[in-house]
């Protein structure tokens, strides 16, 4: 364009211009970029049992060293018929950048509601899990900055937990911790849910050691485990605390409990 109107190639430099975008000394555009992300802290945890799934999260919302709110839920019911979500069958927990988390929850919920309307039945967790992966990957180059965990009961009625990275890689697991205190909770879960480093007493030494057989937890034990995991995380991580929101899916529906955590 510029060459078309310029009649003097020698004088082609800008004599005057309406273009006032800031430039550096070597003529490149000086770009000061607004940072569209922040971290709102908090932690989440999900455990799958034989016929139930627990999805839990603390309820603190932070910005830096400040507590925004002591009750900002991170675990949501997905795909009920109405906004009250009474007949929902899927749980989503999101931790990381809260605004992206809520945008992601709203998208997935809308998609599950449309599915229910069109097909006259709720979406299965496995289908919803794949769809969530697609939603996340669609924003591959401007990701939802969240660690999402999806929970529900699969087609056989077994507990199912799916965990995601911010760009949509996902995996079905027995348990998963996410968020600020994930690194504190995960080794505890490895040991207590997947029985890592637990061996049958007297089975020998070295390669002779027999690993303890992994069996799904009973519901009461899993609930105690979740509370213990969060009590530990609260002691050691400043962004975790205030309240523990714990939702449990069984074939009879979703039960929600709110337990106190330390508020310091």
């Amino acid at each position: 364009m510029a060459a078309m109107f310029s009649q003097n190639p020698v004088m082609n430099g800008p004599n005057y211009s309406f273009s006032d975008a800031p430039r550096t000394a070597n003529g490149e555009f000086r770009e000061h970029r607004f940072n569209p992300y922040s971290d709102n802290g908090g932690s989440t945890l999900a455990i799958a049992g034989a016929d139930f799934t627990i999805v839990a999260g603390d309820t603190r919302s932070t910005s830096g060293y400040s507590i925004n709110s002591r009750y900002t839920p991170k675990v949501f019911k997905i795909g009920g018929t109405t906004s009250s979500q009474d007949d929902a069958t899927i749980l989503l927990s999101v931790v990381g950048f809260a605004a992206d988390g809520e945008a992601l929850r709203d998208r997935l919920d809308a998609i599950c509601k449309i599915y229910r309307y069109r097909h006259g039945k709720p979406m299965s967790v496995t289908a919803c899990a794949k769809r969530l992966s697609t939603i996340l990957y669609q924003k591959r180059f401007f990701p939802y900055y969240v660690h999402a965990i999806l929970g529900g009961l699969d087609e056989e009625g077994k507990g199912a937990v799916f965990s995601y990275d911010p760009v949509g890689s996902y995996e079905r697991e027995q348990c998963r911790a996410g968020g600020a205190a994930a690194s504190l909770i995960t080794p505890f879960l490895d040991n207590q849910v997947n029985f890592k480093n637990q061996y049958v007493p007297g089975s020998g030494t070295g390669h002779d050691l027999k690993e303890r057989e992994v069996v799904p937890l009973v519901r009461r034990d899993a609930e105690i485990l979740v509370k213990d995991a969060f009590d530990g995380a609260v002691e050691r991580h400043i962004e975790v605390g205030d309240g523990l929101q714990m939702m449990t899916i069984t074939k009879d529906g979703i039960e929600e409990v709110l337990l106190p955590l330390k508020r310091d």
Binding site: M1, F5, Q7, P14, N15, S17, F18, F29
Partner: peptide, 16 residues
Amino acid sequence: YGAYDASFMNPNGPNQ
């Protein structure tokens, strides 16, 4: 007035 600087019409520059 000197050569006209049409760079403001260049769509590749940053928006402010």
